[in-house]
Structure formats: structure tokens, C-alpha cells
Design a protein around this nucleic acid. Sequence first.
DNA 1: AATTTTAACTAACAATTGTTAGTTAGTGAA
DNA 2: TTCACTAACTAACAATTGTTAGTTAAAATT
Lengths: 191, 191
Amino acid sequence: MKNKIESRKEEIIRVATKLFKEKGYSAVTMRDIAKSMGIKAASLYNHINSKQDILKTIIISLAEQFTAGMLEIKSSGESCVNKLKAIIKLHVTLSSQNIYGMSSLNNDWMHLEEQLPYYIKLRSEYEDDFKNILEQGIGKGELINVKPDVMMFSILTTLRSLYLWIPKKEDIDLHDLTENLSQILLDGINK
Amino acid sequence: MKNKIESRKEEIIRVATKLFKEKGYSAVTMRDIAKSMGIKAASLYNHINSKQDILKTIIISLAEQFTAGMLEIKSSGESCVNKLKAIIKLHVTLSSQNIYGMSSLNNDWMHLEEQLPYYIKLRSEYEDDFKNILEQGIGKGELINVKPDVMMFSILTTLRSLYLWIPKKEDIDLHDLTENLSQILLDGINK
DNA sequence: AATTTTAACTAACAATTGTTAGTTAGTGAA
DNA sequence: TTCACTAACTAACAATTGTTAGTTAAAATT
């Protein structure tokens, strides 16, 4: 059952994810998805339950990967600065592996229906964990004493937008990117 | 003709802008907009030409304000760091005055039709100007020598996402926010 | 008072939406 | 060979979409 080769269902989700990034969930029709695969819209329903379900699969799977990553970082016992570097790396990794899906995660989460409260819970907990790390860093004197809200917003929105930027640089080295981002986000650009 | 009081057309645009932020352009119907105003969808067409036209008005007007702001900064003769601070202030100002419209600018620009090339031109030029300032800063030794692409991406995506964050803090002082952001974006958070 | 203008309305349109029902050709297992 | 299964198809559906036409009551202008 679980083959290495892509199942038809996975293909639908992959194609849909790319279309969702280009036009947004609401502007993509089932006929668009079908046409991209060279079949008819009705045929999609042999493999998936609904359009909603495609979106849910994309978003929840990604959100849970971020949650799992944060859990590991949180309990790593590293310094706060190292935890922040690990968060940066987590975003670079997941974003580069899911450049299309990140768009739905960022822009189409409000079109989740039953799963909306669950998504919001995951996101809130992620942000709380992030903020806790920053607050500890301030408390221990590792970080400057600026409002952790503003700090988190600034860093997290940069990381959340990585998907917009990674595909533009085909030759990009992800390790370099992680290093450069860490430097910029942690130490600033001012000499 | 040009009264201080809001015209019906302006009211439509204001209401639509808010709905576009909540659900995205494609998911908002003319009947949604009309319902929010307590009238019927057909009545909207006494004041506006099309749904497209509402989006165009929102996005192009905002994009042109950013272009105008950048033009002023570019030719100010200030140091690069001060130019960057001015850009931060520009984004805080325009974002706080247009928290709903910024969402369309960021997420619904691809649904522009005739005006899409013009929008893309404005955006490219803005980013080129931004990058030039960074490159000059590096050349003069004001800024650290990291890829200006990564620097611009990091700062600009933070600034472009301000609209998501400003409304959450009702008591926010915009001057404080500008200062905090300048510190974080320019000098980092590492002590 | 007569008129034009404004801005709402109802009714309808053609196109498009997500989805279901029923059918059919091909594939692997019994 | 027979059988069940897979995955495509055509046809259709009810609902919703942006928009237009024609009407009407009130307000502004003459």
C-alpha cells in the first residue's frame, strides 16, 4: 500500500498545492486541478473527498511538522540563542521542502472549516513557545531587553515568508541561507 | 464634489477592503459587500464599475504611496542607515493607515488583470531602490557585508507583514514601534 | 412647479462552482 | 475464465457567481 511511488491522491494534492500558491485556494477550481492532471474534475473524487479536504491535508500536515520541530527545540537544553538558530533552521528546512504548501499555511488557513480551531490552537502554542524562548533569553541576559512581542513578530514573519523567496534563488545553498539569516536576525545588519 | 464626508463609492471600497482582508479577494462576493452595507448587490453598480475595479483601486493606490515615499527617501541625501530608518517609518505609517488594504497588496495582487504589469513594475522598482540603498551601505562600510538580497528579504518581509500585527496591539504607540523595529532590524536582538 | 439626477430596488442572465450518479474499459486475483 | 476493483468517463444537479436591464421613489436643480 505505502509505495515509494506517488499515489494518485498524492499527485492531486501536489498539483493542487502548487495551484493554491499561484492563485489562492478560493480562486482554484476543481476543474483547474483536473486540467493540470489531464483528467476530468469528477475523476478527482475517486481519490479525494472534497476540495476542503485537500486544503486540510496541506495545512494541518505542515502545521504539525512545525509543532513537532518546536517540541524538540524546546526540550533541547540549548542556550536561547542556539534555540533561536534551531528555529531558523527548522523554518528553512520545512519551507524549502514545502515552498508551495507554505503559501496555503500562511494565506488560506482561514478557509479551513472543521479543522480551523485545531489549526489556530497549533499556531498559538507555537507562538507561545517562541515567545517563551525569547523571554528566557532576555531574562538570562542573552538578548537585548526589547518587547518580546515585537522581536517575535519581526523574526517570525521573516521566517514565515521564506517560501516566497527561496524559489527565486535556484542556486541557493540552504546552509548558507540559514547562516546568513541567523546573522541578520540575531546580530542585525548595522556594523 | 470632493467632500470631506465619505462618498458612497468610498464606503464600498472601505467595506470591501475589510472583507478582502478577512477572506481574500476571490472568496468575497459582491453580495457579501452589499450585505455589509445593507443594500443589494446590484445597487453597488451605481457607484463602482466592477469587482476588479475595487481591487485595482485598493492596490494601485497603496503601491503608488510606497513608490512616492521611496522617491523622497532616495533623494534625501541622508546616510544609508537613516534611509533605512525612514523606510521603516514609511511602512509603519502606511501600514497603520491601511491595515486592511495591505492585505490585498500582499496577497491578492495576482488577481489584478490589466493593471498587473503596472503593479509588478512598481514593486520591482521599489525593491531595486531598496537594494541600492543596502548596497551603498555595504560599500561605505555602514552595513555588514552580507548578501544584500538576504538582507532586503528579511527586512522587507517583516515590514510587509506589519499589517498583520499592528491591529493586535490597540494601545500601540507607532513611534515606539518604529524605534523598536529599527533597533531589532538594524542592530539585531543579540546582546 | 417641472425637471433631472441619484441611488436604491426587483428580476433575470449566462457562466461557473463543487459535487453526485451511473457507466465503462482495463487490471490483477480467484 | 470469472470476478472484483480501480480509475477514468459523461451527464447532470442545485447553488452561487458577477453583472445588466428596467423601474421607482426621493432629492437636488432648474
